[in-house]
Every structure is written in C-alpha cells, then in structure tokens.
Design a binder for these strands. Structure first.
Lengths: 251, 251
DNA sequence: TGTACATCAGTGAACGCGCGTTCACTGATGTAC
DNA sequence: TGTACATCAGTGAACGCGCGTTCACTGATGTAC
C-alpha cells in the first residue's frame, strides 16, 4: 500500500494484470515488457526486478488464462446442476450432460476470448497432464472417480484446476454409470479434447471463421452429439432421439 | 534462364521456394522478406517487384503448404487402394478405411512438418470451404494454376485440391455405402476435421507434446476408432471387433 | 542489321518501428544497536 | 529515540537486433522501325 511514487508497491501483480489484458487483446505475442511498463507507469527495466525473462511473465499469463478457461467450463457444469435441481434426471443423462457442458464451456471460452485461449497454450507447463498415463485404470468398473486416493497427494484439488482434470472426472463419471465402456474409456480424453480444441481453432484461425454464431452452435452440437453417440455405442446403450443432452438456454 | 547476375531470371519462384523452406523450419513467422532476399542473393527491396506485401508471399506459402498436406493425405489413400488390391474388402470396410486414412495422413503431416502445417492455416484463404462463401472471386487472377474455371464448373477437381474436399468425398462415400446415416452425415466434416486438427495441435504446441511416437499413434487410433464407432451407430451397423480399419504398415 | 527507346527488374540508402536485456546508478525502506 | 547501514525496488541510458516498406536510381532486355 505504499503511496510513494518511486516504489510502486505491487509492481509484480500490476504487470501480470496488464499482461493478461494485453494477451486478452492480442494473444501471447501481444505481451511486450516495454509496453506493459509504459501501461503501469514504470521504467521498462523495472520489470526485471520481478521476472528474470519475458517468458516468465508469459508463463504466468498462461496460468491465469488457463484458470479463466477452467472457470468457463465450471460455469457450464453449474448450469447442468441447476437444471438437474429443477428437473431431476437419471445419473446417465446427468453424466452425459456434464461432458457436453464442459465441451461447450471450452469452446465458448475459446471463441469469446481468443487471445487468452491462445495464451493458455503458449509455453504453458500445464500441471498434471499424465501423458504416459500410468493411471489407466484397467478398471474394476466402480470406485475410481470420487476419491481416487492413489499415490497422488490430493488429486481432487489438482483435477479441478485444469481442463484435463475436469474432463477426466466427467469421463470417469460416464464410465461409472455404464454409458462409456471400459475399453472406450481408455484414451477418451484425447478424443474429447481434440474435438473441442480443433473445433475452436478451426473457427478462430482456420478457414471456418466466417460462419455466424447460430451456424457455429449447430456445428458444435453435431460434433458433441457424434461423441455422445460413440460412447453410447461403446456400451450398447440405446439413446432416445429426444434425450436432451444440451443444458444450454443459459445463453 | 538468364545467366546475368543483375537480372535474376526467376526471382519470384526462388523467393517462394526459399519462403517455403523458412516456413518449414520456423513456421509462418519465420518468413522474413529481408532474410529471404539474403538467401536468394538479392537486395531486400527486389522482392517488391513480385509481391506487394509480405502477406502476399505468406499466402503463397500457405497454398503450397496446403498442397503438401493434401499430398500426404492422398498418399495414405493410395495405401488403402493398394491394400485393397492385394486383399479385396467390401465397400463398407473400404470406405471406413479411406476416412481413417485421410485422418492419419492429416495428423502425420502435421507432426512431421509442424512449420508448414501451421503455415497452411496462416492467413490462408482456403479455397472452396463453403461456410458462408458467396464465392466472391476476389482473386486477382495470378494464381489459379490449372485454370479452375467458372463458379463451380468442375467441383471434383476442386475437391481433390484441399483437405476439406478429400474429407467431403470420404464422408459421401461412407454415407453411400450406408455406414453413415443421412442425419449423421450433416456436419460430419466438422467432427472429423476438428478431431484431427485438435489432435495435431495438442501434440504440436499443447501440453501433450511429450508422448513418444508409439503412445501418440495409439492415442490417435483411439480417436479414430471413436469416430468410426459413432458412424456405425448412426446407421445401426454392427461392427466386428476384428475389423481392420487401419491400413498402416506402410509406415 | 543497327539504333533509339520504353520497359522491366534489379540496387542501396534511408525511414521508422519496437523489442529484450544489461548496467551503473539512486531513492526509499526497514532493521540492529 | 536516533542513527548507520544493508537491502530492496526503482531509473534511464545504452546495446544490439531485425524487421517492413519506400524511393530515386540504374543496369539489362526486347521491340519497333
């Protein structure tokens, strides 16, 4: 809380905030130390008291952008819960809706905040994405999801803090209720994440950026329905044509 | 074929070739007029005799990169045909294999040539992707190598020249043989393209870049199988667990 | 066949831009005694 | 309570980088007569 004009008092945070705004407007490349210093009202070399390289700042921006992405996904999950409170549905439909919801949240964020979305993947050391995936529960059907208290200290806290974690939880739930077969559960993260990530980028910077919002929404619905259908088929579950797996309306 | 040292003789092409190599190595941002001029052995302002802006060169690079991408996809399609010649299969399995093949070709190219892959989508005015597309032919003549005549005179020629066209053909075939229902056919391009595009980018610049080649291949297989299963389900087609939809082995 | 001339395709100097990073420095803060 | 001093957090000049683009120019080419 220093009022001095020489010591800023909270320069690091001020720089990060300014950097996030720059990234929001122009993507990760828009984060320029000199310009941020100008914005914050400080000499350009002052930043080096708080970050050893520009990349360190960009990494911080990536982390915050990822946080916003997760928040957007969780917002959609909340809508599912609210809808379920008003008009209860069976666990299977609920699980399907939850998977759809996080996909929609992901894409909605990407399209609403392209700069941040791109920043989230710029040099981001996303925590806890198990690429080798040792945790491939050749599962005993039940158990896993809620308290999967394996070797990791507090996995739940971890899981909720990044998109991969949310996705894993949603897929686990889908497997538990029997909608997604154990065989199809393996690698399902990849399918879902690829689909929504690709959809987002094809619309952001790809040749598909032209469609209007309604067309885009319809296209996304089709992608998500295709995935849902694949999972139903994996377990031989019949799906009713009038199953409402979209909780939208909340926008 | 000028031997003069003053007139280059074929500067435009030389610049494009150098630009493609720069993009191959460093992506679209690696295309710098001054550096290319240096490479080609010409003053940096000479480039402006052939391109009015840097972006014009980058667009040309994008087109060539897209061409290489298509070639990679077609290479995989050829493998399917070869396998089919040796060991004939029914039309349904053939159609499924063809869809898988172009997906594999797409991803293989993206991972083998990340710089070009990114360049292909940098400011590329991909021809013939019908989103809103009033077909406003704003092109200034120059390109149009094969003389792609009227407004849609020869769609087949068009279709083969870009990824979207190959995908459309493959999906049409899949619908014709009854594997993909008419309802699911709508928007199917989006699902497939999103999946392979997202998969590629998550591995290129996303948090998944670490996995080894074998793990990556397995992950891709799972994605493609999920799509195949979705389409089977759309038409109620039963799929045999030992259907071999992967034609690989050719690498 | 030879010459004048228009045109094409280069040159190189210059403008203006903004960036990341380093370095010796100085003003402010807080702590030990 | 007051003072010395270490430490922290700024300053501003400087280095070095490479880029895109413009402009007046000049060397080479080809064509009309």
């Amino acid at each position: 809380m220093a009022v001095s004009s020489y010591h800023h008092g909270n320069l690091r945070e001020a720089l990060v905030v300014a950097a996030v705004e720059a990234a929001r407007a122009s993507g990760p490349d828009g984060v320029a130390l000199r310009e941020l210093a100008r914005t914050v009202g400080v000499s350009h070399s002052a930043a080096y008291r708080h970050f050893s390289h520009r990349d360190e700042l960009v990494a911080e921006v990536a982390a915050r952008a990822m946080g916003e992405l997760v928040a957007a996904m969780e917002k959609r999950l909340d809508l599912v819960e609210q809808a379920g409170a008003v008009d209860p549905v069976d666990p299977v439909l609920r699980a399907r809706r939850r998977l759809i919801a996080i996909g929609e949240g992901y894409v909605a964020f990407a399209l609403a905040e392209p700069g941040l979305f791109r920043s989230a993947f710029a040099a981001s050391p996303l925590p806890g994405v198990p690429v080798g995936v040792p945790a491939s529960v050749d599962d005993d059907g039940a158990g896993a999801a809620v308290a999967d208290g394996g070797d990791r200290a507090d996995p739940a806290a971890d899981l909720d803090s990044d998109p991969y974690g949310l996705l894993t939880e949603a897929l686990d739930e889908l497997a538990e209720v029997g909608y997604l077969s154990a065989a199809a559960r393996v690698g399902a993260e990849m399918t879902c994440w690829s689909a929504v990530h690709g959809f987002s980028l094809l619309h952001l910077e790809g040749p598909l950026g032209t469609g209007d919002a309604a067309a885009r929404q319809e296209a996304l619905d089709q992608v998500l329905v295709a995935i849902d259908r694949s999972y139903a088929a994996s377990s031989g579950t019949a799906i009713e044509p009038d199953d409402d797996i979209f909780t939208r309306r909340g926008r």
